[in-house]
Simulated scan of single mutants.
Amino acid sequence: MGTLTINILGTSFSIQAKENDSYLEGLLLRYKKLINSIEQSTGLHDNLKLSIMAGLSLCDELRQSELHADSSLHKQKHTNSELFEAERITLKLIDNIDKVLK
């Protein structure tokens, strides 16, 4: 179990989570970098707007990741289907060859 003190966007508080301290610190560092990036690219300085933009950005990243995973899964299923069909045809050919050779 980890503990993290968050000090960002004009607020400070501590949280506890089942993840370890270094994992939580890594998340906070990533969030801070995202906030800084949004602030630099948009010129926003309002903490609430920055946090909302960061939340939307993270939701977009998560959704894109989900879509990519769904696409990869679909490709894998399609590939597995093709392999199954190739195996079926191969076994049928082997069976036909065995019948001719007997």
Score class of each variant (00 low, 15 high):
Tyr31Met: 09
Gln16Leu: 09
Ile94Asp: 02
Thr90Ser: 09
Glu82Leu: 07
Leu48Val: 14
Glu19His: 13
Met53Cys: 09
Leu28Arg: 07
Asn80Arg: 14
Ile89Asn: 12
Gln16Thr: 14
Lys18Asp: 02
Tyr23Ser: 14
Ala17Pro: 04
Arg88Ser: 14
Gly2Ala: 04
Leu48His: 15
Glu66Phe: 06
Leu50Lys: 05
Asn36Ala: 11
His45Gly: 03
Ser22Glu: 12
Ala69Pro: 04
Gly55Tyr: 00
Lys33Cys: 04
Thr5Ile: 03
Lys92Asn: 14
Ala54Pro: 08
Thr42Lys: 09
Thr3Glu: 12
Leu62Ser: 15
Leu24Thr: 01
Ser14Leu: 15
Ile38Val: 06
Lys32His: 07
Glu19Trp: 04
Gly43Thr: 00
Leu9Glu: 00
Asp70Gln: 11
Leu48Met: 15
Ser12Met: 07
Ser81Phe: 03
Ile8Val: 14
Leu29Thr: 08
Leu67Tyr: 07
Asp21Val: 09
Phe84Leu: 09
Lys77Gly: 03
Leu29Met: 10
His68Pro: 07
Asn36Met: 11
Ile6Ala: 02
Ser65Thr: 06
Gln16Cys: 08
Gln76Asp: 07
His74Leu: 02
Lys102Thr: 11
Arg63Met: 15
Arg30Lys: 12
Leu4Thr: 08
Glu25Ser: 12
Glu39Cys: 00
Arg30Glu: 03
Leu48Ser: 11
Thr90Glu: 02
Ile97Asp: 06
Ser12Gly: 08
Gly10Trp: 01
Thr42Gly: 01
Gln64Met: 09
Glu19Tyr: 06
Ile38Lys: 01
His74Arg: 14
His68Phe: 12
Glu61Ile: 10
Leu34Gly: 00
Lys75Arg: 14
Leu62Asp: 15
Lys99Leu: 07
Leu62Asn: 13
Leu4Arg: 09
Ser22Ala: 10
Ala86Gly: 03
Gly26Pro: 12
His68Ser: 15
Glu39Ile: 01
Tyr23Ile: 13
Thr11His: 05
Glu25Lys: 07
Glu39Ser: 01
Met1Tyr: 06
Ile94Cys: 02
Thr90Gln: 13
Thr5Ala: 00
Ile6Met: 01
Leu73Trp: 15
Glu87His: 13
Ser12Asp: 08
Ala69Trp: 09
Thr90Ile: 08
Asp60Leu: 05
Gly43Ala: 04
Leu28Lys: 11
Asp46Thr: 05
Lys92Ser: 14
Ser51Pro: 03
Asn36Arg: 11
Thr42Met: 03
Lys32Arg: 14
Asn7Gln: 08
Lys99Met: 03
Thr5Asp: 04
Met53Lys: 04
Leu58Pro: 07
Glu19Gln: 15
Ala86Pro: 03
Gln64Glu: 10
Ala54Thr: 02
Lys49Gly: 01
Lys18Thr: 03
Leu50Asp: 01
Gly26Gln: 06
Lys49Gln: 10
Leu56Gln: 05
Ser22Trp: 08
Lys49Thr: 05
Lys92Asp: 09
Leu50Gly: 00
